[in-house]
Simulated scan of single mutants.
Amino acid sequence: MKKLYLKDIAKNLNVSKTAVSLVLNNKGDENKISKETQERIIAYVKKYNYVPNQLARGLSRGKSETIGLIIPNISDTFYAQIAGFVEARAMEMGYTVVFSSSYEKPEKESKLIQSMLNRQVDGLIISSTQKNEKDILRLQENDFPFVLIDRHYPNLDTNYVIVDNFGGIYHATKHLLDLGRKKIGFVTIKSDLDAMQQRLLGYIKALDDHGVEQDGRFVSELDQKTYVTDMAEMIRAITTPEKRVDALLFSTHYLAREGLRALNELNIQIPDEVAIASFSEMSAFDLVNPPITAVIQPVQKIGDLAVDILVDEMKGDHMIKTKDKRIVLDTNFKIRKSCGA
Rank of each mutant, 00 (worst) to 15 (best):
L24E: 07
Q297G: 10
K111G: 03
P290G: 11
T188Y: 04
T240C: 09
I268N: 09
E273H: 07
I70A: 04
P290M: 09
Q114N: 13
P52C: 08
H253V: 05
F166D: 01
A277E: 02
R181M: 08
N25I: 02
K225E: 11
E87C: 13
G168E: 00
T18H: 06
E265S: 13
K111C: 02
T129C: 09
R138A: 11
E36R: 14
T188D: 04
Y254W: 14
Y254M: 14
M196R: 14
F333D: 01
S34L: 05
V23N: 06
H175A: 02
Y160G: 06
A341G: 15
N12H: 14
V187K: 06
R89Q: 10
E141D: 10
R244S: 11
I9S: 08
N31L: 09
E30C: 08
F250A: 04
A10S: 02
V163A: 09
A80E: 05
H175I: 01
E273P: 03
C339W: 02
A237S: 15
K323P: 02
A80T: 09
A195M: 13
F99V: 09
F78M: 08
E30I: 13
Y5R: 09
D304G: 12
A275E: 01
I9Q: 07
S34Q: 07
S127P: 10
S278C: 10
Q114E: 15
I125D: 10
L124P: 03
N12V: 11
K190W: 04
L249H: 02
G84L: 12
I327W: 00
T173H: 02
N25Q: 03
A80Y: 05
S128A: 14
V121H: 05
I184V: 08
D304A: 14
V245H: 03
E39W: 03
L55T: 15
A43D: 11
G28L: 00
S251K: 05
S191N: 05
R217A: 10
L263Q: 05
Q214W: 00
I276P: 07
A172C: 03
I268A: 06
L201M: 10
S21V: 01
S60C: 13
E265M: 12
I292N: 09
A284R: 15
L255E: 05
V161P: 10
E36H: 12
T331V: 13
I335A: 06
D29T: 12
K11W: 04
T293C: 12
A237L: 14
E30L: 13
